[in-house]
Design a protein around this nucleic acid. Structure first.
Length: 1152
RNA sequence: AGAUCCGUAGCUCAGCCUGGUUAGAGCACUACACUGAUAAUGUAGGGGUCAGCAGUUCAAAUCUGCUCGGGUCUACCA
């Protein structure tokens, strides 16, 4: 062994243990000192862009582990594309508006929405919101940095900034110009607890729909004997009761006082049923859909005894009197169910002059799937109700206010909340009381708890109401077809989300309700006159300034801005400096006809903020050059590009990623705005990742206490291990069961192995001074095993690239893992160990170093996108010695490209065979209990064809060394020594034989060795199967060796191996020698000798053992670096060792 | 209520698209080996009615239908 030079030289850094968090700290320090991220972007100046949009998080809440997974995905794709040669700019952003923030502030201040403007001024309230919005910004910045998410946080877009809001206004004004922004009254989901209407995509937040048990009631509406209904009264004339009731089911009893109609299906068949009210036991006659009769009446009760009710069985008698279609009752009148002061006909008339309430209506939405086939209709509280009510002009009653409680004039129910909106401890469900009232009044047929899925407000968790509201809408339905068509061009990962979930959503979309009646958000930029005759939609601050000046000129006063003031210009600028409420509402504009115009009070849905980020993150461009005419969606990015901040290709995004819960949130609003105005997709590829569950598969929630703290996780296990685990454990879109044990496994299994491999390399490379200064050894001159690992390496590059290009990082990570563990560490390094520490610094050794170095360096580059820290650390450590790469970071170099000249398929195949043969022999050794250190004479391998033998012969040396045998012998196919077995080639034969397959299979299993031989010789054989003759070809069967009589045999697939287990005296002696070497090596190590120290050895052993050692003296001395090996009977200061159950004394001393 | 995904070893996952006869890996467990990669490593072993039922087929973890269990989503369900 070469003695290392004493000269100073750079060495590979040898680590004292794998401490990922510590390494990451170090790497983070370097990144920030060297501006590694910034450079990774600037170094690609002029390269093609890969456009990434960052979905803005809200810093109002703490980051969780689920943020780590989606941000890992974003980061790894961006890093990969950077390494692929693209320039990837990553502008960060903050979502700062919206309900969560307002509610947080209200909670903090202990106020409700009603208090705003009373207990606290709107101005102060909004100041609070502005502060609260970035409450956890520090934490977010911290996790972003620690997890290694490269995103530009120096110049993020912030949705509350004027430039951002201005862009939203411009987009809205473009929509307005196109007639896609309109106002309408509609029945909308409304959250009394939050005090605002909700958009459909807010309603579609996960967890909004909850299974709840509500009181449901089948109410009885007393039909009047008048007009269309008389035929029913004729039918019951002779029955105990002459009253006829229409049965209608509801789960929202609080809507009953507002009832104005009953809707039936024109072609649905209804039945008039004579029965008894189960609560009052009074005889009654009811009407319901014939199809649903069975739901309310038991078959046993049909035509039962009407005079004596069986109290025990509770079976009530019933009888169908007549059947008729719903159309026959159209317009029939009924008696109001719950009359109060507030819902008298006079009151109804006052609200809706000319209304004709309490009638039977017909509409197609009525089904017989549940309920009774007759729908209780309260126009204020249901979209269908509103529609049909309007058609029949039955009026509209809204006896519940916006806080969710009954208004004055609803008797004993006035002032009571229809649901527990205030978390009252003594809340009594008003719905139950309504049911009781109905029961007592003979107006209820069935009252029961009913479990159904009901929408809840995503922030307050309280049930929503459907409530009539004025609102502004974006007419997304007008461009539905375009949005559907554009969606088909998007690369969705997984595909099913895009086609199914998102695709369906698009097919069934409704207009986007933009209005929010809140305080902290983007104001709708529409001003109108009191009579609503004139209105204007403002698109830019400049336009607002002009309009404001006009109005001041016209003598209107906006806040402090008065005509003729000295500092008017200054005052105007001050007023325009914050576009939020309340300031914006103090601006009064003048209409063309000279009337004052006030802003409509609405704010817009915060989802518009995030959906508009592709444009608003850059603000409005400077169009003073007027090169492309007035600003429009067509030239928006062109103008921006003129100023050089971004390229004209900055839209659409090449790629975005977010949780699957954003399907109807961000993914939708991005798609909608892009489709509406820009006639384009907003993103070409989107990954929607699944949920992160706890290790038991439960949702993580603060309530259950099973949330995982991402800071703690990263601090204790490292960001790399966490990222690697998140990516490789399950496909991103599958739900992930997050288990810390899994991260530990990744740490040990993958990072541990890679680290050990590097340590191994560094240890010997430092001894030999390998710094890759020699020219690269040509592939043809490298030994088989080197060519094999390089071939595997390039196959790996190929596969990883394919997976990464297909946005399948899970696949990529798993095959890298497999390569490092199985191929590199467990086979290449293990088999090559001797090459590194034995012998001179020869060509073979250099080849080994170069090969292992190339593998390490390439693996590090392959894994860099997923685990950016450790890869960078290793990359820099390798480069520190070799200087092969001048890059400051692995993230600045190019991704490896597979070189096909390195790939040798048959080499990889035969190496696989070597691994299989070795594994078989080791298992045989185990079976007969002969340890690997005991050399054996030979193994026997039956070969089925010439190429198999040729393949095996090229790897003989490897196998022999690995399993410690002297020779490999081959048994060719035509020998009669091996017992063979035959089975059908099912794929080939199945097609040919079909049903006769079983019989042939049975016949083959009965084949004699002679028959098999005959088939092999002739190439075909004649068979009689079920009386039919058929010819079987050799290729239609699979022949393999089964057994070699008298030998210990093991097999796997077509491969079988026999082991000669005879231990001759010579072999035994060699076994002793090997044992001896092994013991001495241990002594050397225990004594702390250097790898290169020479030693002198004295031994006292039995004659038998001594002679074994003498005969292998050269070998022994060579192995243990001994200058002398002497035998002696008298030795002081010895060590006792044992070899094959014999003890001996040795003395090992360092030379010199 | 519908749509959709999922159900394979104690745990985490491959395999399923394109059916082929001993269903794989890692972890964990047990035993053993190795001892100059050593706070490392290797080998072997046990462990499965591929959720259940039915169908198609010579042949089903794989294709079809139904059922059960879990997740997610949809809905103007009164």
């Amino acid at each position: 062994m070469r003695v290392p030079s004493r000269l100073m030289r750079v060495k590979y850094k040898e680590l004292t243990g794998l401490n990922l968090p510590a390494i990451e700290q170090e790497v983070l320090k370097q990144w920030s000192e060297k501006q590694t991220f910034e450079k990774s972007v600037s170094l690609r100046e002029g390269a093609p862009s890969f456009v990434f949009f960052e979905g803005p998080p809200s810093a109002n809440g703490m980051p969780g582990i689920h943020h780590v997974i989606s941000r890992t995905l974003k980061d790894l794709v961006c890093r990969y594309k950077t390494m692929q040669g693209f320039q990837v700019k990553r502008k960060g952003g903050w979502d700062t508006h919206g309900l969560p923030i307002e509610l947080g502030v209200e909670k903090e201040l202990g106020i409700t929405k009603e208090d705003i403007g009373v207990k606290i001024s709107v101005e102060d309230y909004n100041k609070k919101c502005r502060k609260a919005v970035l409450r956890y910004k520090g934490k977010w910045d911290d996790i972003t940095r620690k997890m290694g998410f490269w995103v530009d946080l120096n110049d993020p877009y912030i949705t509350f900034k004027n430039e951002y809001i201005e862009t939203l206004w411009w987009l809205l004004s473009e929509l307005y110009k196109k007639g896609l922004l309109y106002e309408s009254v509609s029945i909308q989901p409304y959250s009394p607890a939050a005090g605002t209407g909700l958009s459909s995509h807010e309603l579609n937040q996960p967890g909004s729909y909850k299974d709840v048990k509500d009181t449901s009631c089948v109410a009885l509406f007393n039909l009047l004997n008048q007009g269309p209904s008389t035929f029913l009264f004729d039918a019951v004339r002779l029955l105990p009761s002459s009253e006829v009731f229409l049965m209608a089911w509801t789960t929202t009893l609080w809507t009953l006082p507002s009832n104005l109609g009953l809707t039936m299906g024109a072609s649905i068949e209804y039945a008039l049923v004579q029965t008894i009210n189960p609560y009052t036991q009074l005889p009654i006659n009811v009407v319901l859909a014939t199809e649903l009769v069975g739901k309310y009446f038991k078959p046993e009760g049909e035509n039962g005894n009407f005079t004596a009710i069986d109290e025990k069985t509770k079976i009530f008698p019933w009888k169908i009197i007549t059947r008729f279609p719903g159309s026959q009752l159209e317009g029939a009148l009924y008696e109001q169910l719950l009359p109060f002061e507030a819902n008298t006909t006079a009151a109804i008339e006052l609200i809706t002059p000319g209304a004709k309430p309490f009638r039977v209506l017909l509409d197609s939405f009525v089904t017989t799937e549940d309920g009774t086939g007759i729908v209780h209709t309260a126009p204020a509280f249901g979209a269908d109700d509103y529609k049909v009510g309007k058609k029949y002009e039955i009026g509209m009653l809204t006896l519940v206010d916006r806080e969710g409680k009954f208004v004055e004039g609803v008797g004993e129910f006035s002032g009571r909340y229809v649901k527990d909106y205030k978390n009252q401890t003594d809340y009594v469900d008003v719905n139950v009381d309504i049911a009781i009232k109905l029961k007592k009044e003979n107006r209820a047929f069935r009252v029961e708890k009913y479990q159904h899925n009901y929408p809840h407000c995503w922030r307050t968790d309280k049930p929503i109401l459907y409530y009539p509201l004025d609102a502004w809408f974006i007419s997304t339905t007008a461009v539905r077809d375009k949005m559907v068509a554009l969606n088909k061009t998007i690369n969705w990962k997984p595909k099913s989300t895009g086609e199914g979930r998102f695709g369906n959503w698009l097919e069934h979309m409704v207009d986007w309700n933009l209005s929010r009646s809140r305080y902290w958000g983007t104001p709708l930029p529409i001003w109108r006159t009191a009579d609503g005759e004139e209105q204007i939609c403002i698109g830019t601050i400049a336009q607002l300034r002009e309009e404001l000046i006009k109005s001041v000129e016209a003598g209107l006063v906006s806040r402090d801005c008065k005509k003729g003031q000295v500092d008017l210009a200054q005052k105007i600028e001050k007023l325009l400096s914050d576009l939020h409420k309340p300031f914006i509402d103090q601006i009064i504009l003048v209409s063309p006809s000279g009337k004052p115009m006030h802003r409509v009070p609405d704010l817009i849905d915060v989802w518009f903020d995030s959906g508009a980020m592709p444009y608003a993150q850059w603000g409005l461009p400077d169009i003073s050059s007027n090169q492309f005419g007035p600003l429009s969606p067509e030239n928006f990015f062109q103008y921006h590009a003129l100023n050089g901040t971004i390229s004209a290709q900055a839209f659409p995004a090449s790629f975005i990623a977010e949780g699957v819960d954003q399907t109807r949130g961000w993914f939708y609003t991005l798609h909608a705005i892009a489709g509406l105005l820009f006639d384009s997709v907003a993103y070409q590829t989107v990954i929607s990742n699944g949920l992160v569950l706890d290790k038991n598969g439960n949702k993580m929630s603060k309530r259950l206490g099973n949330v995982v703290d991402p800071f703690q996780t990263i601090e204790s296990f490292g960001a790399d291990a966490t990222r690697w685990y998140l990516i490789t454990n399950a496909s991103p879109w599958d739900n992930l069961k997050f288990d810390l044990e899994g991260i530990k496994e990744v740490q040990r299994k993958f990072f541990g192995t890679l680290y050990n491999t590097y340590q191994f390399f560094a240890l010997y490379a430092n001894v030999d001074g390998f710094s890759y200064k020699e020219p690269s050894v040509p592939l043809s001159q490298r030994p088989e095993i080197d060519r094999w690992i390089l071939s595997s390496l390039h196959t790996l590059i190929q596969k990883v690239t394919v997976a990464m290009d297909d946005y399948e990082p899970t696949q990529a990570g798993r095959i890298i893992e497999d390569f490092v563990d199985q191929q590199l560490s467990n086979w290449y390094v293990r088999l090559c160990r001797r090459r590194f520490w034995k012998g001179e610094y020869s060509a073979d050794k250099i080849s080994a170093y170069q090969t292992l170095y190339e593998c390490l360096e390439t693996v590090v580059r392959l894994m860099a996108p997923i685990s950016p820290f450790f890869s960078d650390a290793l990359f820099l450590q390798l480069n520190a010695v070799t200087n092969r790469n001048t890059a400051e970071s692995v993230h600045h170099v190019n991704y490896p490209v597979a070189d096909h000249s390195f790939i040798d398929q048959s080499l990889e195949e035969r190496m696989q065979m070597a691994q299989d043969v070795s594994s078989l022999v080791l298992s045989l050794r185990k079976k007969v209990n002969i340890k690997v250190r005991q050399p054996l004479q030979r193994i026997l391998v039956p070969v089925l064809n010439a190429s198999m033998q040729a393949q095996l012969q090229r790897i003989e040396d490897l196998i022999k060394a690995e399993i410690n045998v002297k020779s490999i012998e081959y048994l060719s196919a035509d020998n009669t020594f091996i017992k063979k077995k035959i089975k059908p080639n099912f794929i080939a034969l199945g097609k040919k034989l079909g049903p006769k397959m079983k019989a042939v299979s049975a016949a083959l299993s009965d084949f004699s060795q002679d028959q098999i031989t005959l088939l092999e010789k002739e190439g075909h054989i004649n068979l009689q199967v079920e009386g039919e003759a058929l010819v079987l070809q050799l290729a239609e069967t699979e022949i393999s060796s089964e057994d070699i009589p008298g030998w210990t045999v093991a097999g796997k697939g077509k491969l079988s191996v026999a082991l000669d287990i005879t231990v001759t005296p010579k072999l035994e002696a060699e076994g002793h020698a090997r044992e001896f070497v092994n013991r001495i090596q241990k002594i050397r190590k225990d004594a702390g000798f250097e790898l290169t120290d020479r030693v002198l050895v004295k031994v006292q052993a039995s004659a038998d053992l001594a002679s074994s050692l003498v005969s292998f003296k050269t070998y022994i001395c060579d192995e243990i670096l001994a200058d002398t090996l002497e035998f002696s009977n008298e030795m002081p200061d010895t060590t006792t060792i044992e070899i094959n159950e014999e003890t001996l004394q040795v003395q090992v001393t360092k030379k010199g």
